[in-house]
Amino acid sequence: MQIIAVVLAAGAALLHVYIWVLESFRWTEPATRRTFGVSEADAPVLAPMAYNQGFYNLFLAVITLVGLALMGSEHGTGTALALAGTGSMLAAALVLVTHDRSMLRAALTQGTLPALAVLFLLLQL
């Protein structure tokens, strides 16, 4: 169970690092704008918000990765941190889809790995 939990949580963290790169550094590029459904005119206006939001994604990834690193020596602390990170990722995906149903695909992309990680992290306790 623990190996599955670690792999899923690490995958969720890596996905959120990728989202950080898109939102914080590649926001105005055409491929990124298409991914997020942002027009060329709106991208510069939204760039400060996206930059900030990208760092939220990075911080969730860091919390998760630190938790995974600690699971070997400090199992309870590591699991708690990994759950805090992946649980927050899952919560963000739920907020996204409950606010705007048209964002279902994005919420599934953002939230599936964290949801599975939360499940397996809880099962391995």
Rank of each mutant, 00 (worst) to 15 (best):
G72E: 13
H75W: 13
G72M: 10
V38W: 10
F59A: 13
E74K: 10
E40L: 03
P48M: 11
L46D: 05
F36V: 02
G72Q: 10
P44G: 01
N52E: 07
A43Y: 04
H75K: 10
L46V: 03
A69W: 15
V62G: 05
G54F: 03
P48N: 07
M49K: 12
T64M: 04
L46G: 03
V62R: 09
Y56N: 14
F59I: 09
S73H: 14
L65D: 03
N52V: 15
E74N: 11
T64V: 10
G67Y: 08
A41E: 14
A61T: 07
D42Q: 15
A69H: 11
L46E: 12
L58G: 07
S39D: 02
G37Q: 07
A47D: 05
A41H: 05
A43G: 01
G54P: 09
M49G: 09
M71I: 14
G72R: 14
L65N: 01
A41G: 02
A50P: 01
L60M: 15
N57D: 06
S39L: 03
L70Y: 12
V66N: 02
G54C: 05
P44Y: 00
M49C: 06
N57H: 06
P48W: 07
Q53C: 12
A61V: 07
Q53L: 13
I63M: 03
Y56E: 11
N52M: 14
F55L: 11
R34E: 14
A41L: 05
I63G: 04
E40T: 08
L70Q: 11
S39N: 05
R34D: 14
A69F: 15
F55M: 10
Q53D: 14
N52G: 07
Y51I: 00
A61L: 08
F59T: 13
H75N: 06
F55P: 00
A50E: 01
E40P: 00
P44C: 00
F55W: 14
T35R: 12
M71R: 13
Y51K: 14
F59D: 01
T64L: 10
T64S: 05
A41M: 07
D42C: 02
R34L: 14
D42M: 06
S73I: 10
A47H: 02
P44T: 01
V66F: 03
L58P: 05
P48S: 03
G67N: 08
N57Q: 04
G67R: 04
S73L: 12
I63E: 09
E74F: 15
Q53W: 14
G67K: 07
L68Q: 06
Q53E: 12
L70G: 00
H75M: 13
V45Y: 10
E74H: 15
A61R: 13
V45C: 02
G72W: 15
V66Y: 01
N52H: 11
Y56D: 10
G37A: 03
P44M: 00
V66M: 02
V38G: 04
A61Y: 12
L46W: 04
N57M: 02
F36P: 00
N52P: 00
V45Q: 08
A41D: 04
V38A: 05
A47R: 06
A41Q: 11
I63H: 04
E74T: 11
A47Y: 00
N57C: 00
A47I: 03
F55V: 06
L46S: 08
S39Q: 02
M49N: 12
H75V: 11
A50D: 04
F55Y: 14
L58T: 08
L60K: 01
R34M: 13
L60G: 12
T64F: 09
